[in-house]
Nucleic acid binder design. Structure first.
Lengths: 195, 195
DNA sequence: TTTACTATTGACACCATTGTTAATAAGAGG
DNA sequence: CCTCTTATTAACAATGGTGTCAATAGTAAA
């Protein structure tokens, strides 16, 4: 009797493998793709092993949600915190949000009731964000911190909206493809005018 | 043998009953609440009857998606098309998008691959939107239609982003509750300055 | 080498959801 | 009153996703 060789991974490695496959499935197949059978198949392990590492299917989903949220906050922070000119910063922000993975992550979070799943990690990032707010405020006469916050949130919310339903809304508005492409740059030019 | 009396509805009435219950379930329980068993129970009919009217569970979901999308486009149009001052219009727009139903609708659409389910109805509303774009353009010197389009899209996308993850993003930015409430009004004041 | 720990696996059971079918009954039209 | 259509229902079957369990096999430590 020949038995198949087993690959024994350490727990972190196994979890990382599984979450990577889960993230890809979320992008390609939406929420319905996030079942333990398919995710396990994609990552080359058996579904029993997956349950061993995450406890339940819901546990796996929560772990993925937390991981992706952390990554998004991190990406946003590093873009906002860069020394690039505002025009570049805004374009980068829109480019980040137009990735399907980010869109589906935000949509998924909006559909979940208990959206405080990842609040701990995000609260940890407030300090960094606050630093960014201060830096933007310094460019404003009178160092208007509230104005800086509003401007940053306007850029962020618009980028999110762009990611969620940009193409649909824009074609509804009758915008051509090139007009759609130029919108991020336009925002980058216009928002500084409000200072 | 006593048989229960049967209520016989006409098809439109039955479909309306079912979709109303489905919409409420989407708001309260998310996508997982959109199964034929629960929806049928809530609307007081048997799940077999539901399948008779919509063909399949997916058919019911597509019908709900189409109905809600139509309603959203209609609400957006009537707000944009009102004669109210820009400040009021923006606040109304944000109020519309902050309703949980609209949030979940957009999130749902973003998660679905085939987002052209409702394209026909939306395309039919382009004429109305185009009329609104023209009206806004008339307030701009030189009747800059492209600028009008960009402004409207900035407002819309920001409102969508506000609906999808407004509270989360804003508390991450360190905004107080009152600052969060005032944001729509702030947008209403600022955007006209870009003209 | 021996032992202890645990990641891994296959097989199984369970449950929720979906879909099918034949029978029934309500209502419209003749 | 009779007939035809079809909305309605209960009961059943099928499927797929979830979770359990005992056995197995790497791996590190004693």
């Amino acid at each position: 009797m020949i038995t198949k060789p087993r690959i024994r991974r350490n727990p972190e490695e196994a979890r990382a493998l599984i979450l990577a496959a889960a993230g890809k499935r979320l992008e390609e197949h939406g929420l319905r793709g996030l079942n333990i059978k398919d995710v396990a198949d994609d990552s080359g392990i058996k579904h029993g092993t997956l349950l061993h590492h995450f406890g339940s299917a819901e546990g796996m989903r929560r772990a993925l949600l937390a991981k992706l949220s952390e990554e998004l906050i991190s990406d946003m922070s590093s873009i906002l915190n860069s020394d690039a000119a505002p025009e570049i910063v805004f374009v980068e922000l829109f480019r980040l949000m137009s990735q399907t993975g980010q869109t589906k992550l935000l949509a998924w979070r909006a559909l979940e009731e208990d959206s405080d799943i990842v609040s701990k990690e995000e609260i940890a990032s407030i300090d960094l964000i606050e630093h960014i707010v201060q830096r933007v405020a310094e460019r404003i006469k009178g160092k208007d911190v509230d104005l800086a916050r509003n401007l940053i949130f306007l850029a962020l919310s618009s980028a999110v909206g762009w990611g969620i339903c940009g193409p649909t809304l824009m074609s509804t508005l009758g915008m051509t493809a090139s007009q759609q492409d130029q919108f991020p740059a336009w925002v980058g030019e216009q928002l500084p005018k409000l200072i």
